[in-house]
């Protein structure tokens, strides 16, 4: 392979890029369908049913329709920022795929700052929402964006603190090392149950999902930060949201639920991805379940929950962990 046309590292990059894009789109298609179907069954109705077998083609059809819709740019909007915002929302949520440990061999790059990389990329999402709300020159858009910024800043702290308490045990930010520490020992959701629960709650808020979907609360803010977006601009925000769900669930699985470990399968180094994805989709199912079960919280309740309860408890957990590790 020395004389190959493409150097192996470049080939690897191309395959990785293809893989990531495929996963993002297939995941979004599947999740939108699953969400509508589960929502339907929770409300005692079948959900999408007639378009394709049991409505299986519904999201595909919706996607094509979104692409054919007119792209409206309001007259008073900041044209460039308005156009850039959906891309800004979409790109950073794709980046964390680079460091996710799907299985022992199916990791694109094993960075020694993997966890920090994911958190940094996740915070970029807030900026996209702010740019979207600001540039569309719409009061609902701006309100939605402002709420989103306040909410995401408040909930990034408990996420960071809860993940830090795991990092204290493993002594490493590398995703692979964290997973391997759980395979040789206990899963961290058993060692750190408080951190796990705090992470799950904060992750719901971080992805702007109900019951914490304040940035797009329909009854108060029309559609929040994407009020002015039509067609695929709105579609990209949607894709970003579902990819974001995938990312936070993957981090939860890698850090707390033992990553690719599970019952032994043939060719374990590759097929471990099965267990990883299974756990991820179970977590995502729980997120959908929560969305269609609980009503939206008020904004002050949302802020109180983070600043008064999640952050103090996460800090306490961190201190206790630090003391125990030191002893």
């Amino acid at each position: 392979m020395d004389t190959a046309f493409l150097p192996p590292e470049l080939l690897r990059m191309l395959i990785a890029a293809l893989f990531v894009v495929t996963v993002v789109f297939v995941n979004a298609l599947f999740m939108v369908y699953a969400e509508r179907k589960i929502a339907g069954h929770i409300q005692r109705r079948p959900g999408p049913y007639e378009v394709g077998w049991h409505g299986i083609l519904q999201t595909l059809v919706d996607g094509i329709k979104l692409m054919t819709k007119e792209l409206v740019i309001p007259r008073d909007a900041n044209r460039m920022l308005f156009r850039v915002a959906p891309l800004l929302a979409f790109t950073p949520v794709v980046m964390p795929f680079l460091v996710l440990p799907f299985s022992e061999n199916l990791t694109i790059i094993d960075m020694n700052i993997g966890l920090i990389f994911i958190l940094a990329m996740a915070s970029l999402n807030v900026m996209a929402i702010l740019v979207a709300g600001w540039s569309s020159n719409n009061k609902y858009g701006l309100f939605g964006a402002m709420r989103s910024v306040a909410q995401n800043i408040a909930y990034e702290i408990p996420i960071l603190l809860s993940l830090l308490s795991v990092v204290l045990i493993t002594n490493s930010f590398s995703m692979r090392t964290i997973v391997e520490a759980q395979i040789s020992g206990l899963w961290f959701c058993l060692l750190q149950p408080l951190a796990f629960i705090i992470y799950l709650i904060a992750a719901l808020a971080e992805t702007n999902r109900a019951p914490f979907d304040m940035p797009e609360a329909e009854s108060e803010l029309t559609a929040g930060f994407h009020t002015e977006y039509s067609g695929m601009g709105f579609g990209l925000f949607f894709l970003g949201e579902y990819t974001n769900m995938f990312i936070v669930s993957s981090v939860a699985v890698a850090v707390f639920l033992g990553g690719w470990s599970g019952l032994p399968l043939p060719m374990d180094a590759w097929t471990g991805a099965f267990w990883f994805l299974l756990k991820v989709y179970i977590l995502m199912f729980i997120m959908i379940w929560v969305r269609w079960t609980y009503p939206r919280v008020r904004f002050d309740q949302l802020m109180n929950l983070s600043w008064k309860y999640l952050i103090p408890f996460a800090l306490l957990n961190l201190i206790v962990t630090a003391v125990i590790v030191k002893l």
């Binding site: 109705r45 959900g47 007639e50 409206v72 559609a223």
Partner: peptide, 23 residues
């Protein structure tokens, strides 16, 4: 949009709050 009639069977249950996103 609710049970018993359920227009979502035909994919029309996505009531969008913003006119920009509705058909």
């Amino acid at each position: 949009g609710m049970a018993r009639f359920d227009v979502s069977r035909y994919g029309a249950e996505v009531f969008r709050p913003s006119p920009r996103q509705s058909d």
